[in-house]
């Protein structure tokens, strides 16, 4: 860049003019502004994720021994190294028939303090039962009504898909659900309910009976008539929810 300077010839001479012009060409002093930060919501707030306030449980070695001591030796699901279907995930799964009936305590009681364990009654409360194999099934158990056949077609169900009958407390009134559970267990034990395994969900006061779709109508009718249940019980299939009432 060229700078042309026009000046009057006076006594100071051109040397001062060079100094003046250098000063005139100097950069203006500038103040650096701080970056703008909005006060709300902050960038950090926008980026931060959310998490449960509660911390996950800590498992101590003592808990581990208690956990194992509460698992009965006859229960194959926990001791077997063979792959088994996941318990809480539902799905189209077949329960592996067991020869013996196993008993276990409530899930919520699995981890207790040592005092509770010592003071607890020795009696186990049965919470599930399994169908004993090797039983010949009569043809009448497999007959399906037209209405139920339509339900099967509508949901494209397979005949050996697992379905679940749900008996709630209301269905058992005025009797206690525990007494109905005892009868259910006995019926399963005596192979009156083909392909059935039953589960007592004590925390929600429901009895769940898992069976093959093909026998589910027979089992539903059996439950209603034999156990004198009130109201209707519903049949649920994984991913479809309640598909039938009996």
């Amino acid at each position: 860049m060229d700078v042309v300077l026009h000046y009057k010839n006076n006594k100071d001479g051109p040397s001062d003019m060079v100094i003046f012009s250098e000063r005139a060409l100097e950069d203006f002093t500038r103040r650096i502004l701080s970056a703008f930060e909005p006060w709300f919501p902050t960038h950090k707030d926008l980026c931060l994720p959310i998490r449960p306030q509660k911390a996950p449980p800590v498992v101590l070695p003592e808990d581990l021994t208690r956990l194992h001591s509460h698992q009965p030796s006859s229960e194959p699901l926990l001791s077997s190294t063979e792959p088994q279907p996941t318990s809480s995930l539902g799905g189209n799964k077949r329960e592996k028939p067991q020869v013996t009936l196993s008993e276990c305590t409530d899930a919520s009681n699995s981890v207790k303090t040592s005092e509770e364990i010592e003071n607890a009654p020795k009696k186990f409360r049965r919470s599930w039962s399994v169908f004993a194999p090797g039983v010949t099934l009569s043809g009448s158990t497999q007959t399906l009504s037209k209405q139920f056949q339509k339900v099967i077609e509508r949901h494209s169900l397979q005949l050996h898909q697992r379905a679940k009958w749900i008996i709630s407390e209301v269905n058992c009134e005025p009797r206690a659900i525990e007494s109905v559970w005892a009868k259910v267990t006995r019926a399963v034990c005596h192979s009156k309910l083909p392909t059935c395994n039953a589960n007592f969900q004590r925390n929600i006061a429901q009895i769940w009976l898992f069976c093959d779709v093909i026998y589910s109508e027979y089992i539903g009718n059996f439950l209603i008539t034999e156990f004198h249940l009130n109201g209707q019980i519903s049949l649920a299939v994984h991913k479809h929810g309640n598909i039938f009432r009996c």
């Binding site: 956990l67 077997s80 792959p83 088994q84 279907p85 996941t86 699995s110």
Partner: peptide, 21 residues
């Protein structure tokens, strides 16, 4: 020790059997 072998998506997986967890 709190895990047990189960099957999901046709493959073996390890699932906890600790009720609180």
């Amino acid at each position: 020790g709190i895990f047990q072998k189960k099957k999901k998506y046709n493959v073996p997986v390890q699932m906890s059997c600790h009720p609180e967890l």
